[in-house]
Design a protein around this nucleic acid. Structure first.
Length: 218
DNA sequence: ATACCGATTGGCT
DNA sequence: GCCAATCGGTATC
């Protein structure tokens, strides 16, 4: 079965799925299958970022050209570039005007192995989607994929990205939560923001790394 | 116009 | 475990 065929067996998750609170959407994406550019991954790790009141979010300082998709309706992508090398994939959640999004941090490659092998170079298979930068590279996502409607792609401007429900149900006992990875400042607070979600025992889940402590810019 | 920095990764010790 | 790479976005002057 080709990746496109497997993705087409199940309907896309509807916009209503993403229009809920990001704290429901982020864990709800675990086990779901994400397909883009010939590759399908099973999502194993996500993080929630919640609006201008969340100091760990890019939306904390208000709307900017880069973060604009986050302030729009659910069901759109927010892709951004960081550290001079890496693209990240976020899926916008919540209501229009509420800046919420889910960072897709890791996934297990379930289709399109040959494409991923070519895109990820010498990396071991376990590392193909282990971390948000690696995952975006496996899925061939970059600047042209931000701000795109993946629930109802517009005619003539297709984004070939689909998210479908888990092929096999996720056991709730396998879902773990903890502090977000690499978030500096108060947004990395393990008690106030335990907004990282992952599937226990999955080799593709990225390693935890605390954010660097630095004083908050005024 | 310029300085600072990051929701990371890969290579090396 | 440690650290350099690398550059666009954002803030600041």
């Amino acid at each position: 079965m080709t990746p496109a065929e497997s993705a087409d067996r199940l309907p896309r998750l509807p916009r209503a799925f993403f229009s809920r609170s990001v704290l429901a959407v982020a864990p709800g994406l675990l086990g779901c299958e994400l397909t883009h550019a010939g590759v399908t991954v099973r999502i194993t790790e996500t993080e929630a970022y919640a609006g201008p009141r969340d100091p760990g979010s890019h939306a904390y300082r208000g709307i900017t050209p880069r973060t604009r998709p986050m302030f729009g309706p659910a069901g759109f992508t927010y892709c951004y570039f960081t550290y001079g090398n890496h693209w990240m994939l976020c899926l916008v959640a919540g209501d229009d005007g509420i800046a919420e999004s889910v960072l897709v941090r890791a996934g297990e490659v379930v289709a399109g192995h040959d494409l991923v092998r070519a895109r990820r170079g010498t990396a071991r298979e376990r590392d193909w989607g282990r971390g948000p930068g690696r995952l975006a590279q496996a899925l061939a996502l970059s600047r042209e994929h931000t701000g795109r409607d993946f629930c109802r792609p517009s005619i003539g401007d297709p984004i070939e990205l689909t998210v479908v429900a888990p092929r096999h149900p996720v056991d709730p006992d396998d879902v773990r939560t903890g502090p977000r990875v690499g978030v500096s400042g108060p947004g990395g607070d393990a008690v106030a923001y335990p907004w990282r979600f992952w599937l226990e025992g999955e080799p593709s889940v990225s390693v935890y790394r605390p954010g660097v402590v630095r004083k908050r810019r005024s």
